[in-house]
């Protein structure tokens, strides 16, 4: 009889092939501006803001993800929230923009392990092989909008709006149970 093969590995010794974890809060900002002021505001915040959708610029512990032609998502350590807001305000007169704190709008899950990519396919319609390590995109997970970060071959993060998070988490847990059972 033919046996079915899956392209993920179930780790021996009872370890789950994928882990899903809540992540600690971070400072998050939504930044929107015109191309003419990209350099100035970026400089104020410590970045060369990327232009290509899905690219991420990093500066120390801060990251700026290009979500759209005029939109960036900034993640930073919580302690830097006020400094970021102040830097934006300082640049506003010369380079008008919108910098809105959304630290509490979303929460994040870390999805890691050899079956991490496979787990995401339970509800993410994108071809994840085409999401290179280091990049991130806004997409959907089931019916929830998410920002999906790829931090490594087997390491992803999901930013989910707070009230959608329990639903996303429940699906991830269901998928994780399947994968742990070898299905």
């Amino acid at each position: 009889m033919t046996t079915q093969t899956h392209d993920f590995t179930v780790i021996e010794g009872g370890t789950a092939p994928v882990r899903v974890e809540d992540m600690a809060p971070v400072a998050r900002f939504s930044l929107r501006l015109r191309e003419a002021h990209r350099a100035a505001v970026g400089q104020a915040l410590g970045f060369d803001l990327p232009q290509r959708v899905g690219d991420v610029a990093r500066a120390k512990a801060r990251a700026a993800l290009c979500l759209g032609p005029d939109e960036w998502l900034i993640h930073a350590p919580e302690a830097e929230a006020e400094a970021i807001a102040a830097a934006g305000a300082g640049a506003y007169a010369e380079a008008p923009h919108s910098l809105v704190e959304i630290s509490d709008r979303e929460i994040s899950y870390a999805i890691t392990g050899p079956a991490a990519r496979e787990l995401l396919t339970i509800a993410c319609p994108r071809d994840l092989d085409r999401l290179a390590t280091g990049r991130a995109v806004r997409t959907v997970f089931d019916t929830a909008q998410v920002v999906l970060w790829r931090d490594g071959e087997d390491a992803f993060r999901l930013d989910v709006w707070r009230s959608f998070a329990p639903h996303v988490r429940a699906l991830l847990d269901a998928g994780q149970a399947e994968l742990s059972a070898g299905f």
């Binding site: 959708v53 979500l67 759209g68 032609p69 939109e71 997409t139």
Partner: peptide, 8 residues
């Protein structure tokens, strides 16, 4: 509209 992507 690429509503759940770049939003344009």
């Amino acid at each position: 509209r690429h509503v759940h992507g770049c939003a344009r």
